[in-house]
Design a protein around this nucleic acid. Structure first.
Lengths: 191, 191
DNA sequence: CAATAGTGGAGCATCAGTGTTCCGTTCTCG
DNA sequence: CGAGAACGGAACACTGATGCTCCACTATTG
């Protein structure tokens, strides 16, 4: 996230602990959505007091995570250059880029409950980009025209979720899980 | 569930309210995993006291749900006759049967956290049946041999989850969601 | 070396959810 | 109808999470 207009840019240390807290929060909450703030603080290697300085209430932490995740997703989307080259290849790049988000995916898919934030539910630019890509693929004849773009979007995230669970719970190397995910996506969505 | 050995069979009324509570619990918890017991009771049209008579602690309710769900899944599995006919057709029957479980699917996939029960995590007969079916399909040449049976299992549930979310949040008729789900499964898993 | 930013622990009040009891009311069935 | 089962509301104590404050300690930096 770029510095808020008018807000003083965070010092190096502050930015660092802030990151530590956010990362730990994602890590912990993706496994135990009911985890207490104390557990999150402990996982971040930070006192409960410190965390309270960065995120006064639980809701603040959640919106912090939300923004962070949205930002990462947006960055990943851009990185994948979704408007370049054959649609199917672009979709696979997108899938791989999202896969690299790690635990964030689980939270995204699994616990939308946590994020009561307005920014979350609203259709984001990322969503539109993906839907546009799918439509392009259908126009090119590369993507199954009998599937609605919204459904393809759901399938993409569901497969990402499945791949991460597969890697985490079934002790499959992440690389293999990704390969399975991509292959499955290609077959499922392709024409 | 068949009556526990040694336990007195429940009266008609008791069995009925018990069902009401379990159904309401699944309904509510699948949307708000953090819902309080009071909310569940209200959704069941039942006093908090009454619920406490059936499920003294929260854990009891969860194991109640777990057993109920496992039972329903097992019943659905059997109903689909997974060992009859071509493997791919059997897999689609299975998918459809699971789809009919409704909200239960969301809980199953989305909130395994809730069920700390031993009965849950352990590999069930249902799991083995599904894995066996997939292997049979691969032997028959109907299912992609490059996908591991465990992955196929994950994909099946992920697609079911996606389909239900699609129906619930995107206002797609359940019938359409199921059709998309089946088509996608066939393409993804098939050879 | 100071001054300041940053941290962490202890402690406290509050609050929601929970487990539990008691008692009066309603229903179900012989 | 009448006995016993089933229910629901009110009330209470307990617990854990949370929000918050104060103060002492350490790291950073000019």
């Amino acid at each position: 996230m770029v510095d808020e207009p008018g807000a003083a840019p965070e010092s190096g240390t502050r930015a660092r602990t802030r990151r530590a807290i956010l990362d730990a929060a994602v890590r912990v909450l993706s496994q135990q959505p009911n985890a207490s703030l104390a557990e999150v603080a402990a996982a971040a290697g930070v006192g409960r007091t410190t965390m309270h300085r960065y995120f006064p209430e639980r809701a603040d932490l959640l919106t912090g995570i939300t923004n962070d995740l949205l930002e990462k997703i947006a960055a990943a989307t851009e990185r994948a250059r979704p408007d370049t080259g054959p649609a199917m290849a672009a979709l696979e790049r997108l899938c791989q880029a999202y896969f690299d988000l790690g635990d964030g995916i689980l939270l995204t898919v699994n616990e939308p409950h946590l994020f009561t934030d307005a920014a979350w539910s609203q259709e984001s630019e990322t969503d539109r980009t993906l839907l546009r890509l799918v439509k392009r693929g259908q126009a090119e004849g590369a993507i199954d025209p009998d599937l609605t773009p919204e459904w393809v979007q759901n399938v993409l995230w569901a497969l990402l979720y499945a791949a991460w669970m597969h890697a985490r719970d079934d002790d499959v190397p992440e690389h293999d899980a990704l390969a399975l995910c991509l292959r499955t996506l290609r077959k499922a969505v392709g024409r």
